[in-house]
Design a protein around this nucleic acid. Structure first.
Lengths: 150, 150
DNA sequence: GGTGAAAAGTCGCCCAT
DNA sequence: ATGGGCGACTTTTCACC
């Protein structure tokens, strides 16, 4: 990864659906080397994929909750089970294991507070090893980006 | 938005760079109506855009922090100023205004704990109206998706 | 790395149904 | 609202500087 690679990454992040020729232009290269580098970045996994971004509001997903989860057991099986099962639920969009007072923080999207409450009772509280879930509601999404600083 | 639209959205989310013909197939339509619906979904803003996803680890961005921000002032100017200035810093990838004990939660990426500490001192603590910042470090990213349930 | 060009595949939009 | 098809454009590959 040299500076040209970084310039390419900055350009694709800012303009994900620009044709290679224009991308190359923005990165200060011509199309072939730019394409070669792009492929290399994909193969190496530095570019991990592409995504379509949907507008949560349009889908009625107006509720964003941070669920702070504490466990009663911390054995490996319990952790592995939990870390696997969160992938099954599309309402859970982010999961981090944490230092400090929570064991995990999950970001959960929902259509309404009632919806979230149902999800909390039916799913979150029954995740492997969970002892308590402390929910913080977002009032508004101020910023939300997939663009990383390179 | 009918059921065909939802099938399309599910298909593009799961396979963002599939050619329209195959997408249409997965959604149970043929290419033209699928294409028209996709365009409509984009125009209506339900599809808000595309993105390239980079692997944070490959970029050295191994530190993920939730910064819980409290304000000393809650007047409109302060809030507006803060909500604008977070867009200037690419290290801040998510910002939510919150109910409960924090006014804002920011997710911040960094290359190291020292890096984060610098950012905390130089930027976060000087954001408009901030009285305190409580940082929780993620030990590991378990799940992180842009795919929404439709 | 850059140039140019040509092959393969998609897309965007027309049509007829 | 669906399916077919065609020209325009991109992506991808190549040979060569």
């Amino acid at each position: 990864m040299d500076d040209a690679d970084r310039r390419i990454l900055r350009a694709v992040q800012a303009h994900p659906d620009l044709p290679i020729t224009e991308l190359a232009e923005k990165a200060g290269l011509s199309h072939t080397p730019c394409w070669r580098r792009l492929k290399k970045l994909e193969k190496e996994g530095i570019i991990s994929g592409r995504a379509i971004l949907l507008d949560p509001k349009s889908l009625g997903l107006v509720i964003n909750v941070f669920a702070n989860v504490r466990l009663k057991q911390h054995d490996e099986e319990t952790l592995d089970a939990l870390e696997k099962v969160v992938h099954v639920h599309p309402e859970i969009v982010e999961v981090f294991s944490m230092s400090g007072s929570s064991d995990y923080v999950l970001r959960v999207v929902a259509r309404s507070v009632e919806d979230y409450e149902r999800f909390l009772k039916k799913v979150l509280l029954h995740l492997p090893g969970v002892s308590s879930v402390n929910s913080s509601f977002a009032l508004k999404t101020i910023k939300m980006t997939t663009t990383l600083p390179v």
